[in-house]
Amino acid sequence: MSAGTTTPTRTPSGAATAAASRPAPAADGRLPLRSHLRHIGALARRNALQIKADPESMFDAVLMPVIFVLLFVFVFGGAMFGQGNQDQYVNYLVPGLMAMMGMNIAMAVGTGVNDDFKKGVMDRFRSMPIARSSVLVAKIVVEIGRMLVATTILLVMGFVMGLTLHGSVLQLLAAVGLSMVFGASLMWIFILLGLTMKTAQAVQGVAMLVLMPLQFGSSIFAPTTSMPGWLQSFTDVNPLSNLADAARHLINDEGAVAQPVLITLAWAVGITAVTAPLAVRKFRNKT
């Protein structure tokens, strides 16, 4: 009855034939770049299919920009630029909201990762011959896609509300690109959080705690000139202020661009350099 006795003729060499057509890994098991890209592609496809299976998960990316533009333009617009001059505020607000959009979507990555990484399929990924970072990178690739959708809707909404583009299209694209780069770096923070905290709710709680002061202690919604000095020194280094200013100056073709851009990039690089390796290590050692 036992299976082994019926077919003793073949050795495991037969079992490995499927591997013949695959790119050979180096002797230490490291994979060629082509393989990494293929893995990231396959995993990004998984994340995209998950969104397709659950379209409601796009609600935040679609609705948030619409609601925020309407809300802030009508609530603050009149107060700041006088009744009837809300469209001036649109040009101030929309670039700022680009910074905020990245922050909010990145936060959702944290809760998503926390849920996702409790699932059995992660065990499969972790027992397969792929770089464990591929799973995280794929997630970020798809989330950047979501950010692009949100930013596009934000801009369309902005134009509907009277946004005028004073800079060139290239400057607009640069602003979008910068907010993507910064948003991607934020995602690593939230992935790390998502891998560290026990529940998605806890992740959400901590994320809000970080998010609120960063968002409101910034130049996103209103110029910082009316703030007290101590707060101004905080907003000056706050990456969200710098990103908002950079986007604003690019889109409105006014003021200094180089400094806020450089500060934002420095933050993005710094955050990624610190949190990405930590997140990958955390994922690798997760049991």
Partner: peptide, 25 residues
């Protein structure tokens, strides 16, 4: 594993296709 390790949101076919690609097919 003892507890199923497939992606619940993906179809059966998509699950297997993904694994195949991750195995460099």
């Amino acid at each position: 594993g003892q507890y199923a390790s497939v992606d619940e949101k993906l179809s059966g076919w998509e699950n297997l296709y993904m694994i195949g690609r991750l195995l460099d097919l």
